[in-house]
Simulated assay, not measured.
Amino acid sequence: MRIAIDAMGGDHAPDVVVAGALEAAREWADTTIILVGDSARIEPLLQGTKPSNLVIRHAAEIIEADDEPVKAVRRKKDASMVVAGRMVREKEADAMISAGNTGALMTTGLLVVGRIAGIERPALAPMIPTMDGKGVLALDLGANMDSSPEQLLQFAIMGSIYRDKVHGVANPRVGLLNVGTEAMKGNELTKAAYPLLEQAPIHFVGNVESREVLKAPCDVLVCDGFAGNIMLKSVEGAASVIFSVLKKEFTQNLFTKLAALILKPGLTKFRRSFDYSEHGAAPLLGIDGLLLKSHGSSNAFAIKNAVRQARIALQNDLVRSISKEISKGSEL
């Protein structure tokens, strides 16, 4: 399999991206890693030890974090992200990974790679950590600010397939993000989506309140991008505050420092569960090719984990599985 990586995307590119790509290439000799970007900046980072399954594809332009997504993708034809997307479309690569501009990656997926037939809108699907350590796949968390009930249905189907194929969760439980658990609760969108999800070929468990998400009431959480992104930022903000307060309290005196030493294994495990690098990347589901979005602040470990995710998705034929299920639904 061939995985293209946008070497110039992300807060610490290309250094950490190249480092992560090197680790991935060394671990998985059966996978060709294609670093797409400015070869003059990439080559010095390879330290003269480039594995035979790692290659460079030169791209002269970069889509910056503050670029307007549609304009950037249309005007910067030789940008590393656009070139990687074109490689997926033209079957030169089986998947692509980028830690760059999220909006630009969404636009690359839509304008360069294209949607799966029958999919109305793609969805960004990151993992939210849960108390049981298994996490919840939530979609959409930012690719679409507004969604229709039919689009939420498609998100649910795609999320179920992803959890089954990539995470090995059989018959994943699907929940609908809402302000209450009763079927009649919510706004017009969730009220209309509820019966569609009930009738869908998924394991729908009903409405889920945001305060319950970290307790893992479902394996897949469906929502529109506006509500989902607010929930995600709230979870990230709360986690950040909790870690800051704990650090302050545990460093006040000798006794609290001793307590911190005793609790360190558990606290480390807790902190790791909120670490985006453990999950690697979020898939952009609904695109007719495998696209993964890594966190903008990704380190080498996160990039390597994104490659691991891509390998699993490719081995389980994720994109074609989604396409088959959507086609089946449109025929009913």
Rank of each mutant, 00 (worst) to 15 (best):
R2M: 04
A4M: 07
A4T: 04
I5P: 14
I5F: 11
D6F: 03
M8I: 10
G9M: 12
G9W: 06
G9Y: 09
A13S: 14
A13L: 10
A21Y: 06
L22I: 13
A24I: 10
A25E: 09
T32S: 12
T32V: 12
I34C: 03
I34D: 04
L35T: 04
A40V: 10
E43I: 13
E43P: 04
E43T: 14
P44N: 09
L45N: 09
T49M: 11
S52N: 14
N53L: 12
R57V: 14
R57W: 04
I62A: 03
I63Y: 13
E64M: 11
D66E: 15
E68L: 09
E68G: 04
P69K: 10
V70Q: 08
V70S: 14
K77G: 08
K77M: 09
D78I: 00
R86C: 05
R86G: 15
M87F: 08
V88K: 05
K91E: 14
E92V: 00
A93V: 10
D94T: 01
A95S: 12
T102A: 07
T102F: 06
T102M: 13
L105M: 15
V112K: 12
V113I: 11
R115Y: 02
I116V: 12
G118E: 13
A123S: 14
L124H: 00
L124R: 00
I128V: 15
P129Q: 10
M131W: 06
D132Q: 07
V136H: 05
L139Q: 02
L152M: 06
M158S: 09
I161F: 08
I161D: 07
Y162F: 15
D164N: 15
A170D: 14
R173W: 09
V174A: 07
L176T: 07
G180L: 03
G180E: 12
E182M: 10
E182R: 10
K191M: 12
A192E: 15
Y194A: 04
P195N: 10
L197C: 03
A200T: 01
F204N: 03
V205I: 13
V205K: 07
V208W: 01
E212R: 12
K215W: 01
P217I: 03
C218M: 05
D219Q: 11
L221V: 08
V222G: 05
C223F: 03
F226N: 02
A227H: 09
G228F: 04
G228H: 03
L232A: 07
L232V: 06
K233C: 02
S234A: 15
E236T: 01
G237C: 02
A239C: 13
V241Y: 02
I242R: 00
I242N: 00
I242D: 00
F243W: 13
V245H: 06
K248F: 12
F250H: 11
T251N: 15
N253T: 07
L254R: 14
F255G: 01
T256L: 01
L261N: 12
P265K: 03
G266H: 05
L267E: 03
L267M: 14
F270I: 02
F270V: 03
R271S: 11
S273T: 08
S273L: 12
P283W: 07
L291I: 11
L292M: 15
K293F: 05
H295K: 02
S298C: 05
I303L: 11
I303P: 02
K304W: 04
R308Y: 05
R308M: 11
R308K: 13
Q309H: 11
Q309Y: 06
Q315V: 00
L318Q: 07
V319Q: 13
S323C: 07
G329Y: 09
G329I: 14
S330P: 00
E331Y: 06
